[in-house]
Design a protein around this nucleic acid. Structure first.
Lengths: 194, 194
DNA sequence: ATCTCTTGCTAACGAACGTTAGTATGTTTA
DNA sequence: TAAACATACTAACGTTCGTTAGCAAGAGAT
């Protein structure tokens, strides 16, 4: 038995826009493109949304919320910083793989946000990155991690994780959990055999 | 004594365009934006270039050439696949850090290339990625590397390397060589202490 | 002295852009 | 049954877009 949930028109617009923003970029996607994909006229979009940028804002800030929500289970992990880092990486990858299109927009198109949304967005990103840096700092202090540059390491970890939106396919053989595990295993233990 | 090399107007245009494409994106940068930054009228640009896209093509394919050139010294490394991988990573990072703006355009704006340039670009990228995969394959066969998914590993390595364009500052304390060394050390040996 | 090359201008082109106003129709709510 | 809402339309707005045509002034080469 399949339950069909009726999606609001606004949500349909947002989903189609996500796909288009992902493949052509925000600036190169016109309201007429979007309308055509929905089978309506461009002007009709404005019965549901206030502006083109409102769509971008909704996508970006919804994703930000998802990353924050996912962090809850990370803070529950108390058995060590390596374990905590693994949990954080898995949680992060899970969010990305749940909607790779929206993730792509989140990572690539945020710069088209206008103020004050842009500043708010960047502040959230800084805060989020700070959480990863804290795990690294704690892990280095406790002797679990090698002594590395905190920021350098954080950026390297996140870039590896974030890139998954480019190649992950939901119908592939790897589950989100498995992808996160492999990535964390790799970054924590390295490629080389000892 | 400082030698001033006179740059052609075309080159000046290309450099300003690179900066603009990097910060605003290709689609969101207008020819009038570009002209204004150069202190001339938009129409005047067309005394030097054929089209807006020609600029993007020149940036993308020049970077592609640089990545290929840099590979020469990689093939000279014959003392093992771990050493070869390190060399490849350093060479790759060196190219990126030499011009982070052009690298950003190369990585983010190539999708705005029209055919047949887009296909040519993607073919080159596939070929280049194949070279990294070959080192991985050889290293796994020789027992130097752990047995991992080849494509998965290649994508993870390259995403870490490619992200450097976002944070590397030429006036910072790390040389390109040093950045490459640290990244390869990290990906080969991992974060965790044994 | 003439020619060619570089560099830039003004004026304008047709197309596409995001968006608004005003209207119509069917559906849900009171 | 009436009011409110959801959805979509046509027509058009002012703006910006990439680009072309045609012209002009100065520099370097022959």
């Amino acid at each position: 038995m399949k339950t069909v949930v009726k999606k609001s028109r606004k949500q349909q617009i947002e989903e189609k826009a996500t796909t288009l923003f992902q493949s052509r970029g925000y600036a190169a996607t016109s309201m007429r493109n979007l309308a055509q994909d929905l089978g309506i006229e461009a002007a009709s979009l404005y019965s549901h949304i206030k502006s083109k940028e409102e769509i971008l804002q909704r996508i970006c800030f919804r994703m930000a919320e998802e990353f924050y929500s996912a962090w809850q289970e990370v803070d529950e992990e108390t058995s060590g910083n390596a374990a905590k880092m693994e949990k954080a990486m898995i949680a992060h990858v899970k969010v990305i793989t749940k909607d790779t299109n929206a993730s792509a927009v989140f990572f690539n198109e945020w710069r088209h946000l206008s103020e004050p949304h842009l500043s708010e967005f960047l502040a959230m990103r800084d805060d989020y990155e700070g959480r990863f840096k804290k795990i690294l700092r704690d892990g280095m202090a406790s002797g679990e991690f090698k002594l590395v540059d905190e920021k350098f390491m954080m950026l390297t970890i996140l870039s590896s994780l974030n890139w998954t939106h480019n190649w992950y396919k939901p119908d592939g053989s790897l589950s989100p959990e498995e992808v996160g595990k492999r990535l964390s295993g790799l970054l924590l233990n390295g490629l080389k055999k000892n």
